[in-house]
Computed example of a mutant assay.
Amino acid sequence: MAAIYSGIHLKLKSPHTPWEDKLKLARFAWVSTQCLLPNKEQVLLDWCTHALTGWYSQKVEFSQHVLEGLWCYLDDLLHSRKLHSLLKQGKTVSLRLNMAQILIRSSSQDPSLTLPFTVPAVTSVTSLLREGEGRITNSHHVILVLGALHSVPLDHITPHVYMSAFLAVHEALFAIIQCHPQVMLNAAPSFLNVFHRLVASIMQEGRQRGETDTGSPDRDVYLECSRLIERMYSHIAATAEKFTTLSAFMVAQYVTELQKVTLRPDIKLHLTEGIYRILDLCMEHDIKFLTAGLQMGVREVFSELYGSYTHYHKAQRQGEDKYTV
């Protein structure tokens, strides 16, 4: 038997080995003590994830049956007692970020997997981001995470699932802005696009719904999410001056979305306070650009927003600054 499975690593890598046979070899190699392969667990995990990423990036081809087999194999590896035992012994096994991206994107295609799979996957990536504080220097890695977050379902789901998905994405963004601020600035457009998904989703969920909205038990879910949006706006505004170049873009996104809905007053309060923080970053030429560049209906929404900002928030802030001096 050992002779049959000799050179297993070369056979797994060989383009001449049928994929069905590769899968059988990989399964045997994982459970068999006859397969002596240096760093076997990491090698087999890398082989499986490389095959999956290759299929999703259309670099390799194999049947749907093999694809399902690879996913089952990966699941078996990640949940095996053998792997958990190795981890308890202090050994490390790594999973590439692009694999995490594929896991999140693939599960996001099925809304029923949001709570049991997608949210835990995002939470795991968030933990990796926090553990990697100061070590991730390539913005491409952060962009991979942001690309995955962009696919997390935020519509056509129940309030309970929405809250879990919203929190997962929010915490991932917060980990990026807190632990990797400089790297995040290099990926600012991607970061802001994911954040805008949260803003747009809470505007849709937090819109006025007439009599059905009164006394709804879901009100607190969306109100809490609006508080988190306000907090994130504050963190973005405080992160770095480089964001000032995108402040007008953020305001334009906000008013464009706001023009589509009539928000509940309690939710509008938090979102408004948040966007005020971004307006604090806008220079005079940004305001002129927004006034001239926005479409008619959106321009009216912006004028109303900027009027209230000038009258209430800006005047209050200037008064506080004067008092402080």
Rank of each mutant, 00 (worst) to 15 (best):
K314P: 04
M163L: 11
K82T: 14
Q204F: 07
S57W: 10
D75A: 09
V125S: 03
E273A: 10
I229S: 07
M232I: 01
L144E: 14
Y312V: 10
P217T: 06
A248R: 06
Q58W: 08
R135F: 06
V301F: 00
K260L: 14
I236D: 00
H65L: 05
P111W: 00
M1V: 14
S32A: 14
L129P: 02
M250L: 01
T126P: 01
L279A: 01
H65K: 05
T244C: 13
A188Y: 07
Y254F: 02
A51Y: 09
S106F: 07
R96P: 04
I275R: 06
E304Y: 03
R277N: 10
A168P: 08
T137E: 12
R197V: 04
D213H: 08
F195I: 00
L23I: 02
S216R: 13
Y233R: 03
C225P: 11
E300I: 11
L95M: 15
R299S: 02
V43E: 04
N39K: 08
E273G: 11
L154F: 01
H150A: 09
A237Q: 00
R219D: 12
E20Y: 03
H311K: 15
V152W: 03
D266Q: 12
A172P: 04
L10S: 13
Q178W: 03
L198C: 00
M203H: 07
D46Q: 13
Q42G: 03
V255W: 06
L12K: 00
W19K: 08
E320C: 05
S151Y: 07
S216A: 14
V152H: 06
I8L: 05
L198W: 01
H311R: 15
K322T: 11
L185K: 04
C225D: 13
I229E: 10
H170E: 04
K24S: 13
G307W: 10
L77H: 08
L78V: 03
P189Y: 01
R317K: 15
L223I: 13
H196G: 06
F195T: 01
I143D: 11
V93P: 07
T272W: 08
I202M: 01
C35S: 15
L167A: 06
H313C: 00
L103Q: 13
L113T: 11
A200F: 10
H156Q: 15
D76S: 13
Y233G: 02
S57P: 06
C35A: 15
S80V: 11
R219Y: 14
L115N: 04
I4G: 05
Q42R: 05
M296Y: 13
